[in-house]
Nucleic acid binder design. Structure first.
Length: 146
DNA sequence: TAGGCCATCTGGTCCT
DNA sequence: AGGACCAGATGGCCTA
């Protein structure tokens, strides 16, 4: 496959990737469907902007006043058990959402760097990584053979 | 309806 | 001690 890719033009490369590596399996819901060049609406609309203290979620879920880390399942044997308050848990949730948001921003940036057809559906994260790997390999081979 | 993808929550671990 | 990172679990949405 690599040899064939080296001999291909970039368009051919994209074609190959679309036909071989990504056979129309990158599905996305209507509300998540985006142009390849446009930032994802899911990512543009910060999911935590109106939930900075997570109080709404907490109210819905009826969270206890304190969370006991490692207090369930096989994790309960942990000796480093750390008791955290609801506020701390909420803050951690917000941080985690922000972290995932920045991760998705990076994925979006990577999506814009790898070649795809305009009409193609938005790449999933795993397909983005796989396509990036193949694309880098292709470009590396191209440089080495010129 | 099953499977894929994703967002979110959560607890464990590592690092500062 | 607290934040960052990670992985597992869960549930929702969408498509074939």
């Amino acid at each position: 496959m690599q040899d064939r890719l080296v001999d291909s033009t970039l368009i051919d490369f994209v074609n190959d990737m679309n036909l071989i590596e990504f056979p129309q399996k990158c599905t996305l819901g209507a509300k998540q469907q985006v142009d390849n060049d446009a930032p994802s609406p899911r990512l543009s609309d910060s999911p935590w902007s109106d939930l900075e203290n997570d109080s709404d979620i907490c109210a819905v879920m009826g969270a206890p006043k304190y969370y006991s880390r490692g207090a369930h399942g096989h994790h309960s044997k942990s000796k480093r058990r750390r008791i955290i308050s609801v506020v701390q848990r909420q803050a951690a949730n917000v941080r985690e959402r922000k972290r995932m948001f920045s991760l998705n921003e990076a994925f979006d940036e990577l999506r814009r760097k790898v070649p795809t057809f305009a009409y193609e559906k938005r790449l999933s994260r795993i397909d983005t990584l796989r396509l990036a790997i193949v694309y880098i390999s292709f470009m590396t081979d191209l440089l080495e053979n010129t």
